[in-house]
Design a protein around this nucleic acid. Structure first.
Lengths: 226, 226
DNA sequence: CCGTATCCAATAAGATACTG
DNA sequence: CAGTATCTTATTGGATACGG
């Protein structure tokens, strides 16, 4: 019985690969399993704890999360780090190479937003909404802007910096920002991506600038059902 | 029994989605299932028949291929087309929107080629090797080149056009090319990506230019095992 | 509270044989 | 050739219990 089990475990780890030299096939061997890319997304802006990942990845079960993290670590995409004594908690951190995949999976997200089946009213994590800004920002509309904006999304704080038509993201305490948005990721998405009125969320600082900022992220056009 | 079956089918089609507004999660709902991105890859350069797909996607089983094609069609990524009378065969063709995802999954492939675990000696399809050229071409090295090159990969012919640091690809009869490479995808990959000597493949036309062409596609550096 | 390990039921994938 | 049908195996997710 013990022997059977070992065999089974080895198989689930390694057997299900595409035996294909194509880089894409290898990419899918690395991060193609269910939830793997979403785990990587959650690590895009800094290390996270197991329980944060579990609660932000709505619907993943603890054992699957453990397995994905273990696999990603074995493959060199994620490192398990123990924070120094005052905190002493264990966190999972994307490696530099793992982070290189993030812009690619993010643009897959922009591509998929063109789908008629995409439902933007579903819940989303704070990483997702911040990443959507970074991915959807229009360099043309953002031209000439050089400002910092804060986001308080539940208990996660971000500072984003618009400059040169791009958006830099930091997880950091909110200070020295021109404006700050406060609300749940879904509420803020409704305002910025869905054009909902500002009165469902809280905005501090320069309200006029906040209104301008919120228009920098046009959604890609839906595909026509052909 | 009939009723049970209907219920089962509905569930397998729709139940396993990530309930997440994030674009990436939706992308995975669309093309995240096993084999789906590889099917899309095979359709990158033109429509293909069921049996071609089955034999080029080494290891896929007929029922899974059927299911993936059906799903991709329902989601608007693939169209089932019947060619006009002389041929009268049925082919699968990527939609315009489906093709938009191809550059993104191709760059995932370039990213994954940095993995220490990537094994370039495994078999690969003719689409894969052509796509690797398109993805890996170095604009700097290709500067000033404006030439057409042919590839005869088994019974698949391609003409690629290097210009302005890019590579355009057509599936077409080989004519008016400066050079033509003849061999299996794996053999040609060994020469171009692996630096193997030219004597394992056949090259026609301007051999000196062929040698220069073969150096335009540097592999990305491997990640160091940290 | 932070994870891990284990058991169980539901699905998805794989292998093979078969039909129009 | 283009798929179906059927059976077997593997993976997933949910619940629960366990160790630090």
């Amino acid at each position: 019985m013990q022997l059977e089990k070992v065999t089974k475990t080895r198989k689930s780890d390694e057997k299900r690969r595409y035996e294909d030299a194509c880089g894409l096939a290898h990419a899918l061997d690395l991060i193609g399993e269910r939830w793997a890319m979403l785990v990587l997304r959650e690590l895009a802006y800094g290390p996270r704890r197991f329980s944060e990942l579990r609660s932000d990845l709505q619907g993943i079960s603890a054992n699957v999360l453990t397995q994905r993290l273990t696999e990603l670590e074995a493959r060199g995409l994620v490192r398990k780090v123990k924070l120094p004594p005052p905190a002493s908690v264990q966190v999972y951190q994307a490696t530099e190479w793992g982070l290189e995949a993030v812009p690619m999976i993010a643009s897959l997200g922009r591509w998929a937003a063109r789908s008629p089946a995409h439902d933007p009213t579903l819940p989303m994590s704070h990483v997702s909404i911040i990443m959507s800004f970074q991915t959807l920002i229009s360099p043309a509309l953002a031209e000439g802007i050089d400002e910092r904006v804060g986001f308080r999304l539940g208990d996660a704080d971000y500072v984003v910096h618009v400059h040169d038509g791009r958006l830099d993201v930091m997880r950091a305490d909110i200070e020295n920002t021109r404006a700050t948005f406060i609300g749940s990721p879904t509420e803020i998405a409704a305002v910025v991506h869905g054009g909902a009125p500002f009165d469902t969320i809280k905005v501090e600082g320069d309200l006029e600038f906040a209104g301008r900022f919120a228009k920098l992220f046009p959604l890609p056009p839906k595909v026509d059902a052909s």
